[in-house]
């Protein structure tokens, strides 16, 4: 039981909004000590895992090109592009992106991601579709961005296991075979399809409700601005 101390520290630390890095370090050392490890052993595990997982941060390499394009109006262009389609909503953009992500990742293509698609293209398009030229309160901007980010996660997670050589399927196969059960990759990929379809439907409902709420929020905020301006005139 004492080994679970790290989990407790993480939950409390994140709930009280301490710096996440500090929380993780404390939780890591507490867990290591509870598991009977020495400080050097703990540092050793942290260091080697940190180095092994450098691939998680390789997206840093694409920041210069995205930053440079933003300097030349990439985000503005994404907004202009969307405004040229009348009647497009943020939710429709997100669901189309999610479907694109599901199909490509289901075919084994890693097309997508937050740095290369959401920040430069999908999120500015969704923001422009909500704003329709009106000023947007920061709260609304944040919510649109959160939803835009979710589209990439939904598409990625609920599409990837349809690909026959997906890392996730190979892992399931490995674990099952270690326990003496033969499993077929094709069966697993086929049974990942219902969830993919249902995820798309649930997301479509969520994004539709999101569109309605955003429109209401935008109307409220424009009306409030109108009231303020009225008072100023008086």
């Amino acid at each position: 039981m004492i080994k679970l101390i790290g989990i407790l520290i993480v939950i409390l630390g994140l709930a009280f909004r301490f710096n996440s890095l500090l929380v993780v370090i404390v939780a890591g050392f507490a867990t290591g000590f509870a598991g009977g490890m020495s400080p050097v052993e703990i540092l050793d595990v942290i260091g080697s895992a940190f180095v092994t997982n450098r691939y998680m941060s390789l997206f840093i390499l694409i920041l210069p090109v995205i930053g440079l394009l933003e300097r030349y109006g990439l985000r503005e262009q994404a907004g202009r592009f969307i405004r040229s389609f009348k009647g497009t909503t943020a939710g429709r953009i997100m669901i189309i992106y999610m479907l694109f992500r599901q199909i490509t990742v289901g075919l084994g293509m890693m097309l997508g991601g937050h740095p290369s698609f959401i920040r430069p293209i999908v999120s500015p398009m969704a923001e422009a579709a909500v704003a329709k030229g009106r000023p947007m309160p920061q709260k609304v901007v944040d919510e649109v961005r959160g939803f835009a980010a979710s589209a990439d996660n939904y598409g990625n997670f609920y599409g990837q296991l349809i690909f026959l050589a997906a890392g996730g399927l190979l892992l399931i196969k490995g674990v099952m075979e270690q326990a003496g059960y033969e499993v077929s990759l094709t069966t697993m990929a086929v049974y990942a399809i219902p969830t993919a379809v249902i995820a798309l439907l649930i997301a479509a409902v969520q994004y539709h409700l999101f569109d309605c709420r955003m429109e209401r929020l935008m109307q409220e905020s424009t009306q409030q601005d109108g009231v303020h301006e009225g008072r100023n005139v008086q």
Binding site: K3, G6, V45, A49
Partner: peptide, 25 residues
């Protein structure tokens, strides 16, 4: 600093694993 958070949490996961947290759960 959130840039390093993913790698950082992977390190925590490795520690949980080494200490046998999964078995307890």
């Amino acid at each position: 600093w959130a840039v390093i958070l993913s790698q950082f949490l992977a390190a925590l996961g490795a520690l949980f694993d080494k200490a046998g947290v999964g078995k307890v759960v």
